[in-house]
Design a binder for these strands. Structure first.
Lengths: 144, 144
DNA sequence: TTATGTGCAAACTATTTGCTCGTCT
DNA sequence: AGACGAGCAAATAGTTTGCACATAA
């Protein structure tokens, strides 16, 4: 797999080693999409039950710094990890907690505005937007 | 103060009581702007040293449900509380951690788009946008 | 005199750190 | 041998819960 190759090379270039744990964590992030460290740990432990959650945290941090995965804070609890090429914006409903995904391109106008106005380079692939989803809006109206 | 009045009435209408603790927490949120529960606790304890952090959490939760304050997750650690009328969008730099504020109106086009496209009512006053700030961008370019 | 609010201790969740030991080179 | 990585236990940060006591209505 090229993932394994790519990771191995990236690590080697920095004097780091490829390990089964690192491969398993990357695979888990890839296949789960939007998983918490806890969920990733469970997935990894299906294959290698002795892997410790500490290793999960350390590996996620490493992969994040290498740019292979990214994390988003979708509200309260634990952050959510995805592989870097899985890009979209999250719409988080603060009423029911549901999450929808929308394409990043919808934010292009805003990205342009912020770049010009504030010199701020918005990273749309990192994003969680909070609000009220259609279903919860409908229910609100029915209550009135 | 009308804050005190307003809070007292809101509480009374629901069979709840106005207490010094609640007033102090609301005052602290108001004067600190973007404070964590921990920071709010410290501020309150300058006046009333025996107030427990538990009370801070319970009161913030109450004020949040009453709509008098709101909280935002600006990245990792603890959430950040502000009074409800202090509305703006946060630009969080994921490199240096700095926070800028911009007016909510800049998001109006996006709010419209999401309303039409997804029936999602984006709450722009709740928002933290992550990216790279001007200073960090400049430094990146110098390094290259 | 009862509902409401507070303080205190303990539990809990998510995460980090220190240390030892194993292993690749 | 020396650097790097993993496992384990303990520490830490942030938050919640249970319970007993206090107090306003």
């Amino acid at each position: 797999m090229e993932t394994a190759r790519g990771l191995r090379k990236t690590l080697h270039d920095r004097g780091m080693r490829m390990t089964p744990q690192r491969q398993l964590v990357l695979d888990a992030v890839r296949s789960l999409e939007h998983a918490t460290p806890e969920q990733i740990c469970q997935r990894v432990q299906e294959t290698a039950p002795t892997v410790n959650i500490t290793t999960i945290y350390r590996t996620l941090d490493l992969l994040d710094r290498l740019g292979l995965v990214r994390h988003t804070h979708l509200g309260h609890g634990a952050p959510s990890y995805s592989v870097d090429d899985h890009q979209h914006v999250h719409l988080v409903c603060h009423v029911c907690g549901s999450i929808q995904e929308i394409p990043c391109e919808l934010l292009d106008p805003l990205v342009g505005t912020l770049r010009e106005r504030d010199g701020f380079e918005l990273d749309a692939s990192h994003l969680a937007l909070s609000g009220t989803c259609r279903d919860c809006l409908t229910q609100e109206q029915e209550t009135e």
